[in-house]
């Protein structure tokens, strides 16, 4: 068996003739009975008892609160007491708020810059780890940081980067008398980005490795015989055969990156005792501070408006991503 390396992958939806989109052939397949085949009838009967409970729970616990959030975002409200309807004012206000825009910008930085770094590193590690001796141990080691609570990194950052911390103590014997101000407000967000790359790469590497492990070894033998380089192996074997796994990972990262909150919260602002410096805020932190800062009257309207915008962002991005990454799964 050989893989046709030169065969172009089909982009987008599989080409279909206009006729095939018509319902006629499907109808004939299902037979002429008006209610569909007996299997279809059975399926329909089971829909409510099987899907119903989950659907009701999901609606009550997720959809209704989400709609509630949209409703609250149209009001000026301190969380309790009277609500004042203000229409779309909250949205207008947060779009005019430089702080929301910069927080949102940080969220996009996490999503795209950190995301790119994570997947480039994850694929690189995948290539290295496949052939490495003791790869199981290596895999565990790189996955480990993902298990650790973000709080730990927040506290560790202090130990490592404080003026009298480990880094400066190590630099001092090397003659660095005026080390950079690692934890200055402007440096906190870059540090958070680096930390996220370090902690998340292992997680996605592990998932991608699981996909890579499925690839039968004879493709690699084929590559070796054809004299393919490591990059060509990635380009023509690994990527196409793990594309669906990669797509899922990308969606997972998109969803989780838009919600990143706790690591920002503990990195700045005295490990959660205060509010982190605004330079490191993400949209999620912006939402939280508006509702729960504890230092001023809660602004639930503005907070939910920013949460609703984040939800809209995730939805649009996931749809776009699914579209952009749509390929026919290669069967092997």
């Amino acid at each position: 068996m050989t893989l046709h390396l030169t065969e172009p992958r089909t982009g987008g939806a599989p080409a279909q003739s206009p006729e095939s989109l018509k319902p006629a052939p499907r109808k004939s397949r299902r037979g002429s009975r008006p209610g569909g085949s007996s299997i279809d009838v059975q399926r329909k009967k089971l829909l409510i008892p099987f899907v119903g409970p989950a659907f009701v729970l999901y609606t009550v616990l997720f959809i209704v609160p989400a709609l509630g959030a949209v409703w609250i975002s149209l009001h000026k409200w301190a969380g309790s007491g009277p609500m004042k309807f203000v229409g779309l004012d909250n949205y207008g206000r947060i779009f005019r708020d430089q702080l929301f825009l910069s927080s949102f910008g940080n969220t996009l930085l996490l999503l795209f810059v950190v995301g790119t770094a994570i997947f480039v590193l994850a694929f690189a590690l995948t290539l290295v780890l496949r052939d490495m001796a003791g790869k199981k141990i290596a895999r565990n080691v790189i996955f480990f940081p993902h298990l650790i609570n973000a709080l730990v990194f927040g506290v560790l950052a202090g130990f490592i980067f404080n003026p009298g911390g480990i880094v400066n103590s190590l630099l001092a014997p090397l003659g660095v008398t005026d080390p950079p101000k690692w934890l200055a407000q402007d440096n906190i967000f870059p540090l958070i980005m680096v930390t996220l790359v370090c902690t998340t790469t292992g997680y996605f590497t592990t998932i991608l490795m699981a996909g890579v492990d499925r690839i039968p070894p004879y493709y690699y033998e084929d590559c070796a015989l054809a004299g393919a380089s490591a990059f060509q192996r990635l380009r023509y074997v690994i990527l196409p055969l793990t594309w669906d796994v990669f797509g899922t990972c990308a969606v997972l990262w998109t969803i989780s990156s838009v919600k990143i909150f706790e690591i920002v919260w503990v990195f700045g602002g005295s490990s959660g005792a205060g509010v982190p410096p605004t330079q490191s805020w993400t949209a999620a932190v912006y939402t939280y501070v508006n509702a729960f800062s504890g230092q001023s009257t809660p602004a639930y309207g503005a907070a939910t408006a920013s949460a609703v915008l984040s939800l809209a962002l995730i939805s649009v991005l996931v749809v776009l991503l699914r579209r952009a990454m749509r390929r026919d799964a290669v069967e092997f």
Partner: peptide, 12 residues
């Protein structure tokens, strides 16, 4: 305690 004033306007 004006909503967000300290955190978003004054503190930074």
């Amino acid at each position: 305690t004006f909503p967000g004033f300290m955190e978003k306007v004054f503190f930074p």
